[in-house]
């Protein structure tokens, strides 16, 4: 199974380690060639403005939209969720999302770093709680009908699924818990 981790910037190294623990050699995706070699993609946390610009300059932006339309499985965490969203508020006016998931996002909606937090989450389909680590996290303002909400904090979605895309506003790669990655790999192998 060839799983790519977008390595333009951010916490890609921790996703690679999580995949390694699950027996998968990840591809670090910095170029279109790396991307084309991947069957599935993880978009890590990081700075979404930086990643937006590097997605465009590397040419991955358009390819990613095409491959997603063909059903490529994608997991986006934090900045990854922002990039996958359909609308971004409180971002830069020129920041263009991939528009692959029907969620509207407010950047840094939970506040600045000083407000970053941990919280136990109850996730749909998981027996035990999952430690959610939220760092300058995006707030989901609204979701479309086609979006399944898998976890919430204070009545706001923090984990969503739409078709073959899973997005979280927290960082599963920072928790010492690979269940979300395992579930993503299961989705990849059945796709």
């Amino acid at each position: 199974m060839k799983v790519g981790v977008l390595a333009l910037q951010g916490a890609f190294g921790l996703h690679v380690k999580a995949l390694e623990r699950l027996g998968i050699d990840a591809i670090e995706v910095r170029s279109l060639d790396n991307f084309d070699a991947s069957e599935a993609l993880i978009i890590p946390g990081g700075e979404s403005t930086t990643m937006s610009f590097l997605l465009e300059s590397s040419g991955i932006f358009d390819s990613l939209r095409e491959r997603s339309a063909e059903g490529m499985p994608i997991l986006g965490t934090c900045a990854g969720m922002i990039l996958l969203s359909s609308k971004i508020t409180d971002g830069r006016s020129d920041q263009k999302p991939l528009n692959l998931m029907s969620v509207e996002i407010r950047r840094n909606g939970y506040g600045r770093q000083i407000d970053s937090f941990e919280s136990d989450l109850s996730i749909e389909g998981f027996d035990a709680s999952f430690r959610g680590i939220f760092i300058r996290a995006p707030l989901v303002e609204s979701v479309g009908e086609e979006v399944e909400v898998l976890a919430e904090v204070n009545g706001r979605p923090v984990m969503c699924r739409q078709g073959s895309i899973i997005a979280t506003s927290f960082h599963p790669e920072l928790a010492d818990d690979d269940r979300i990655h395992a579930e993503f790999l299961e989705m990849v192998s059945s796709s």
Partner: peptide
Amino acid sequence: MDELNRDTGTRLVKRGLAEMLKGG
């Protein structure tokens, strides 16, 4: 925000931001 089990300023939360800045 009044989430019940919300912990701020933890080691993971503080160290986590540096992970987000990697490669930048």
